[in-house]
Amino acid sequence: MIAENTPAVRLNDVTKTYGSHLAVNQLSLTVPKGSIYGFIGPNGSGKTTTIRMILHILLADSGSIEVLGREGTRAANDRIGYLPEERGLYKKMKVMSLLEYYGSLKGMKRSEARLEAQKWLDQLGLSDWSNKKIEALSKGMAQKIQFISTVIAQPELVILDEPFSGLDPVNLESIRTSIIQLRNQGATVIFSTHDMSMAEKMCDSIFMIYKGEKVLDGTLNDIQTEHGRNGIRLQTEGGAAALEGLPGIESLTDLGRFQEVSLSGDHNAFLAELLKKTRVLHFEETRPSLHDIFVRIANPQDEDTEDE
């Protein structure tokens, strides 16, 4: 076991290039033990490369990587569970033998792996399928089996690359609950996702990589505060016309029944001015969603165009 204050993963100035392509540039990152850490970023931004370097499947060109308190800990380390983004299972193998095999690759005894597998199959509602071949399973079921194979050896660090892709809402919910359960049992969970609402809901901290550079890192609250615009969403009897001439409005978007404004000054002073002109039905301070921040960072050109 690692000491309480040692981070589960620490990257220091890590750089990786493929030929002339710079995949990850001077990345530093600390994932605290016992947290759920979300990796977000568009396709090809360096997420999987970062994950593979953490797992020691790929070697960094420079910088240092420390995993569970040790440098050079490889994927084969039995304390880590890894679910790759692109994953497959032996179609001809039976569910239980497959899980036993994966457990044994993680250093478990077959009998131990069997018990643990049975526990997970029960939890995820697949116990009736343990003697069926993988090819008989639906896509969602196969994905749950993959999840079980990742966590069967009770890893201290769980790294899930896109664990929710292709899952229906019911299966998605059961995987989500399982991830939370792992964290509650003391495991550190890193997962990458495109689903921003899932990241917002689940992650203690979020890390975003774009074109190999770290662009976001911190708690959702920190990120929203940092990237938040001073936005107000409001509804008045006077509509958009009532807002004309009021002080401090930097921009105004008329959504019809609602208007969104960004303000330079104090919200309350603005509200007082507005109340003098019309009756206010709705007044809400807005924070940008992770989705908005993601799109804003990943699509700067598009945003420029919109602003024009």
Partner: peptide, 13 residues
């Protein structure tokens, strides 16, 4: 092709 090796190399070298 079926991405099984990706899963395997996360457990064994």
């Amino acid at each position: 092709m079926q991405k099984i090796s990706e899963v395997l190399v996360s457990s064994v070298t």
